[in-house]
Nucleic acid binder design. Structure first.
Lengths: 230, 230
DNA sequence: AAATTTATTCATTCACCGTTGAATTAAATA
DNA sequence: TATTTAATTCAACGGTGAATGAATAAATTT
């Protein structure tokens, strides 16, 4: 009885190439599950076995597709990173095209931040996971150093370029430092840590990214503008 | 020959209680080494064997003193957390005592931030490691959630209390969100991630915490003050 | 139809992890 | 001085990690 039951319950997958073409979908599934797990637990706390189990796949398949753990992680990161990057550049370019003669700080920052909000509200919950990963590794040089700069620096330089035109009297270094402050707020927002909920006794919700970003835009606009008064 | 050599090179520590009282110093050494390793690599990436080796001590001793890995981590965190916390409260109280009738935003923020700078410049390099740990776990809810709120929320509420008196027209929620932005900038500063160095082509150095914090104070003061104009 | 390539699981390797019980030695207490 | 307690290393355990070579089966190419 037990043997029969087990055999029925567990339709053991046999090795070998499966019928039909499902390899792409499976690769995506692996990335999705890995993304979620990395977002919840961080790089080192996630094991390939966990990912494999979540995707209902053998561990060896992960190595087949992604070589090693770090390869999987990088792909998780790049998959959305590249899409987002492109959209942010487009948004900044569009803003410049529309307002070339009267660029202002708030407009530039909004163009910089808007795509993030769009993604969060896109209905693809993977974006939230992706952002949590970004936030987590942003403060973890060992993992995030290279990959973050590589991915994000071009957009940031573009933003600062626009802001500089709105604030021609500001010194370059001051602009970088101001961006540093903005970047920190952004990161903390994306991490959805829940800290603010407790601090404010649930008056504010860190999962409410829309509100968070609006406040961040206000706050940072004021911060940048204060550079002109010196 | 080989045997003799080994015996000479390796003055094998024998088990048993050592002569003289050195247990406190050793406990401190373990905490110091753990602190450094956690700061560089994060919680999960550090092994107890690494810590034990760095402190030139057997792994079992770590368990004797700290029970388990998490216990070691918590103690690393608390050791400096409690000291810092006390000093920040004192600083805020002193500021209020001196300026009870004319509290301003910049003064309050400075009192909130000043102790961090003092520690960084104290000559005890462990503080830098501690801050890196704070930054890392701030965006890692799994590890940092409880412990961060527990440790830091009281000081933050004290800060907001003072700011509220400087900005009586501001709404409570707005103050929390503004703090959220300040907190993000602070965290990123403490992480010393080196990202700004690359971004600015070494015009700014993220290891220069003094400069970073001065800019953060300017930036955040402007951010908070903008709440009054609404 | 045969040979090759692609996609998959299986079974295993080996290093290393956190933790623990026992042995050992010195200090503190009785 | 005898006994207990504190501080330490030793030796090992069971578990789990990432990784890999081989087996297997379908699809594609020849």
């Amino acid at each position: 009885m037990t043997a029969a039951k087990t055999a029925t319950e567990n339709p053991k997958k046999r090795p070998g190439r499966p019928k039909g073409k499902q390899s792409e979908a499976r690769q995506k599934l692996i990335l999705d599950k890995a993304e979620q797990l990395f977002a919840e637990n961080g790089f080192h706390a996630v094991t390939l076995r966990q990912v494999a189990k979540a995707a209902e796949v053998d561990t060896a398949l992960l190595h087949y597709y992604f070589k090693h753990k770090r390869g999987l992680f990088d792909q998780v990161f790049r998959r959305r990173g590249e899409v987002l990057n492109q959209e942010r550049l487009t948004e900044l370019n569009d803003y410049e095209a529309r307002n070339g003669d009267s660029i202002d700080v708030r407009g530039a920052i909004t163009a910089f931040v808007q795509p993030l909000l769009d993604k969060v509200e896109s209905g693809d919950s993977g974006w939230r996971s992706y952002f949590a990963i970004v936030a987590m590794i942003n403060n973890t040089p060992e993992i995030g150093g290279e990959i973050m700069s590589e991915n994000f620096d071009p957009v940031v330089l573009r933003l600062l370029d626009l802001i500089e035109r709105a604030l021609p009297s500001a010194k370059k270094a001051d602009l970088f430092w101001a961006y540093h402050c903005l970047s920190g707020g952004l990161t903390l927002t994306l991490s959805q840590s829940g800290r603010l909920d407790r601090l404010s006794d649930n008056l504010c919700r860190s999962s409410d990214i829309r509100t968070a970003l609006h406040h961040l835009i206000d706050f940072s606009t004021a911060g940048f503008l204060s550079l002109a008064e010196k």
